[in-house]
Structures are given as C-alpha cells and as structure tokens.
C-alpha cells in the first residue's frame, strides 16, 4: 500500500533521513521504534507531505506522492495525527471534527459526514458528550482521542500516528492503545510511531527499528519483542509501564 524507497530528507542542510526503505501492506499495523532523533517523526512528515524527500521515492497505492502538498496527500487517503495532538484549541470539538473533513466536497459531506462522525463516536464515545466544548479544555486523553477522531474524519485508508501516548496519564494511554487495533476492523491501515516500544510492539504486526536516520532492524513485532538487542536497547528488560498487561 505504502512504499518508501531510500528516502532521504533534510532539514536545511542537516540530513535527517539517510535512505529509509519500508513498506506497509493493506490492513497492517506497522510500528516505527527508535530513540529520540532517530528519524521516526521525520519519516511520518515525509509521508504526509510536510517535508519532501530530496532523494528516493514515496509511493502510495502505486502513485508517487513524494513532494505533493499535504492537502493532496490527505485527499489521496493518508491522514497524520501529529505529535503533541496539535488541536485547534480555541475551536470547539465539533469544529475540530468538521475541519477534519475539510477536503470532502459539499455533496460528499452531506452523504458521508454522519457516517464518519458515528464511526468516531463509536470508537471514542466520550467525544459525543464533548462536542460543544472548546478543544483546549479537554483532558489529555480526550485531546488525543479528538486528534485521532479529527484525522479519521477525512476518511483515510492509512493512518499515521505520531507518539499517541506521549504525555498521557497511564489510563488514558492504555485506552488509546486499546483503540488502535480496532481501527483495523474498520478497514484502516496504521503506521505507528511510538517511544513506548513495548506497547507498540504488542499491538503491531511488524516493526522497523530506526537509528540515526536509517532502518537498522525489521521484522515481525513478535520477533522483535523477543530479540535480545531490541530488549536491551528499547524495552529495558523486565521494565514495564504500570498500566501494561503481561
């Protein structure tokens, strides 16, 4: 569905991605793990069009999207939930969701808005009660739900999730991780970037390990969970978040 071939992305003169190759198949949950500064977020931004790769290719469903404007890429069916949620805080929850569907034509909105709203509400029922509230007044967990809901309103086929558990209380983080596998049953494919490698590997099918702008390991999530090197570097052997299951 999505293929990156030796993508190289720069911030000014600083090279952040040094030739990333990866692919995501339809219906998969794929995780990108790695330390701070490994290039996880840059990879997502390269896919969503906020950055364009200087070399290499990005193709989605067989069409090149490298260098396209973000709004074109959203229309093609990729939606990114940015790190730190980045809601439109002075606007209401309702307006945030509505803007998520911005690229739909008036006719599409009339016929599909209700359906996608119901889909978001069924995933995150708490949002339904919050619709008139300003987005900035939600709790951290609710804000993350709204950020995901806003991204889902554009009816994407591929969802890019950047650090969805960052800064959340344990219970809220758990709620988010429980929701992600449910996206699959709705026909969504997920590419997940997450600091919390264990939690990510537990819900993912496959994963890539990034280090200083390169893919250094890849494999099924189960394999990586049990691999010694990964355990040592990213999982902190024996260490668990309070809220994690066995």
């Amino acid at each position: 569905m999505l293929i990156l071939r030796s993508a190289e992305t720069y911030y000014g003169n600083v090279q952040a991605l040094k030739g990333i190759s990866l692919h995501v198949n339809e219906g998969e949950i794929v995780a990108l793990i790695g330390a701070n500064g490994a290039g996880k977020t840059t990879t997502l931004r390269t896919i969503s069009g906020l950055l364009s790769p200087r070399r290499g290719s990005v193709t989605f469903r067989g069409r090149s999207i490298a260098g396209s404007a973000p709004e074109t890429i959203v229309r093609a069916g990729i939606s990114q939930v940015p790190e730190g949620r980045r809601l439109f805080a002075p606007l209401s929850v309702w307006d945030n969701l509505l803007l998520g569907a911005y690229h739909l034509s008036r006719r599409e909105k009339r016929s599909q808005m209700r359906e996608s709203l119901e889909r978001v509400y069924s995933l995150f029922p708490v949002l339904r009660e919050r619709t008139p509230q300003l987005a900035g007044t939600l709790s951290g967990g609710e804000q993350q739900m709204l950020a995901i809901g806003r991204a889902l309103m554009s009816q994407p086929q591929l969802l890019l999730l950047d650090e969805p558990s960052l800064g959340l209380a344990p219970r809220a983080a758990r709620a988010i991780f429980e929701a992600i596998p449910r996206f699959r049953s709705q026909g969504l494919t997920v590419l997940l970037v997450e600091q919390n490698a264990r939690a990510a590997l537990q819900i993912a099918d496959r994963a890539y390990v990034l280090e200083t702008g390169r893919v250094v390991m890849e494999g099924s999530a189960k394999e990586l969970l049990n691999q010694r090197e990964v355990q040592r570097a990213y999982l902190g052997r024996g260490y668990r978040q309070v809220w994690e299951e066995e």
């Binding site: 969503s48 069009g49 906020l50 404007a69 973000p70 709004e71 959203v74 229309r75 939606s79 990114q80 940015p82 980045r86 809601l87 439109f88 805080a89 002075p90 606007l91 307006d95 509505l98 803007l99 998520g100 911005y102 690229h103 806003r150 991204a151 309103m153 554009s154």
Partner: peptide, 25 residues
C-alpha cells in the same frame, strides 16, 4: 462558515491545518 473556521485553524496551527487537508497557501 467552514472557510472562516479553516482560516482560524491555520492561524492556530498551520501544520496541523495542512494535515487535515486545509490548503494553507
């Protein structure tokens, strides 16, 4: 209006607005 809200969204956070498909330019 939808356009007005999109303009406000751009003012709040241009990148986030682009990510929901609002043509910032």
């Amino acid at each position: 209006t939808q356009v007005g809200k999109a303009m406000r969204a751009c003012a709040v956070d241009r990148e986030a607005a682009q990510l929901v498909g609002i043509p910032a330019a």
